[in-house]
Design a protein around this nucleic acid. Structure first.
Lengths: 203, 203, 203, 203
DNA sequence: GATGAATGAGATTTCATTCAT
DNA sequence: CATGAATGAAATCTCATTCAT
């Protein structure tokens, strides 16, 4: 080991190389994400990705086995969107907890526009991308359970139904925001909902 | 059958022909809709449509200029989804009117699953199908105005914001219903919302 | 049916069309055979085949599902090489029968040079084209049984071993002839062997 | 290990280096041979060779100019297959000499399965590897001359024709053995032929 | 020397569209 | 009018070869 470092002179080289590789992988992912999200998966060619990433077509296949693998990497990397969610929202007060959820959700929405738009779009091709369906169903299930427990603590009469409505609201907001972009009054909606759901006296 | 071999002898033939043509046009549209909605526009080939419609590839091009024209015909035909909407919902009582809107919307949702799924999916390919965006924006604008006027009559404090929430709910329900299909508890949601929004005492 | 023939005017059209189609299929097969046999399967591209056949690349896929399907069509079409073999060689006299076999085999060799060269070449890529192996084994088995029965009738002492030698001779001749082509003294070899094996007094 | 970091200090290193290089060259050749022989030249990639040889793709190009050069090295290295042939078979008795030839040939066959299979396979791609043809023709010419002289000494009536038959037998055995592998009754064939050709009384 | 990231040419395959029949 | 053979552009993917490190 020691003599090897003499031969290669500087150990940073290898590390640098790995860093560059990791960076390139990320570049490809981010370019793909942008194009897939805005034009659609099928309407984006590997050539276009390569051109926008400033590399050759072939190189993409050094980092990803196939176009579909690239897509799956994007989709499943997105767990990161919800990293730390459960920790971030915990609170003994259900109103505070609901507030935290709204906070986290709207931030996540704004930060992950492209990822979410891609995933949502894929969800609609039900016969082609079944792996997305399962993925989405699981998520929703977990959310509904969480909502129901909080709404129960808040004393709602029909917590199950109210949880469903909350789920619908979240999806509706996501959908409108992802499609309408810049002109969408997301702040107003957020404020209105926080006022409606996170205020003890409101009930 | 035999008369088909003789050309333009009888005016009834012309009518028959027109009927046949119109029927064929509808066949192509309905097959396309089904395939586009479930597999995606790009993932559906003209060959597949022809095969499922029981006609030749070439014939599709006598009815539609191109694949994209066919798509646009589907999208713009769908005004029919809302035919008679304004007449159907009119009522002096805003609660009854809101009830009518819910009634109409949920019926429309169930009857036009494929159309709506297709349009929604296309909406996400914002750089590729810009014509859809404008189309959707206009619709939404009209709805919001309508909602606001009704909610104002009902005496809501913040009718503009509440209208927005209502719009979000409608889109959220559509989205979940279009993706989850059969298992989606659409009746329960409908009942719950009607109870919440169309009941004078509820307010 | 009758009126249809009026509409299309002439029933020969359809038949002609089928004939043309069949001819085109044969053209592609024969060009492929020539190129595969002389350059090798992997070294022959679909583009080359299309160019030599005077058609577009795409058209090949109207007639054959894939490059490998095209190859398999060539290989399995070749049963025709041995059509009528068993009928042609039958005779009560084993010497005459052996003579018939030589006759048939050498004729077949000369007429099917390309086909045989292709198949033999594929046989050597044992890890890649297993379907050829089975095919060849079955053939050989049948030949050996036939040889043995004839040689037994001729009164050979070790008919089983002699049959094996005969099989080796046939394969050896094929191999040299397929590779050396024009300069190969196939007639002399044929005459010599017929004299050796089909002459009652020789034994 | 440590001395590797110091350049050209001790002549032993140079020798070691040369040995390592020579060994690596042989490794590459043997891996290539195995892969080429079993999958075919075109179906084997440089990457596969590198991976199986445990080195990098690039390194192969310091030992061999190109993939084709590597192939040619394999083919022409194989003269070694016949090293010592002429010395080994010499004998005043033509029967003993013929026996020696059989002995040598069958041994060589068993020891050089892969090499022979590769060369034979290439021989069939006559338009692509012309250099093989010439190579093979020369070999065959030499063999025939040798056979003829021995058979003449043995007193055969038509030594030229018999020599040709012997050549055919050798090629036929090679072909069947190379393709059929393990189940091939090579020992029986060897014994039978030795009995037939190397026994004075047999004639 | 040794690596493997990077390239670019070319292979197979698909498919919207045209057009002769 | 109806067909589907035919085209050609473009998509995905492979791989021999190079070269910076």
């Amino acid at each position: 080991m020691t003599d090897r470092s003499v031969k290669t002179m500087c150990p940073r080289k290898k590390i640098d190389n790995d860093l560059i590789k990791e960076q390139r992988r990320k570049d490809i992912l981010s370019v793909s994400l942008r194009l897939f999200a805005n034009r659609g998966y099928e309407s984006t060619s590997i050539s276009q990705i390569a051109k926008e990433a400033g590399i050759s077509k072939g190189l993409i296949y050094t980092y990803f086995e196939s176009k579909e693998t690239l897509l799956k990497s994007l989709v499943f990397d997105l767990n990161s969107m919800e990293d730390g969610f459960l920790e971030a929202i915990q609170d003994v007060d259900p109103y505070k907890m609901m507030f935290n959820i709204f906070q986290f959700y709207f931030d996540m929405l704004i930060e992950n526009k492209d990822k979410l738009r891609l995933i949502t779009a894929l969800t609609f091709q039900i016969e082609k991308f079944e792996f997305i369906q399962d993925f989405a169903s699981q998520k929703m299930e977990a959310y509904l359970t969480l909502f129901e427990s909080i709404l129960t603590k808040m004393g709602y009469e029909k917590p199950k139904e109210e949880a469903m409505i909350l789920g619908v609201l979240f999806d509706g907001i996501a959908m409108q925001f992802l499609v309408i972009h810049n002109d969408y009054p997301i702040k107003e909606i957020k404020a209105f909902l926080i006022n409606k759901y996170c205020n003890k006296k409101a009930e």
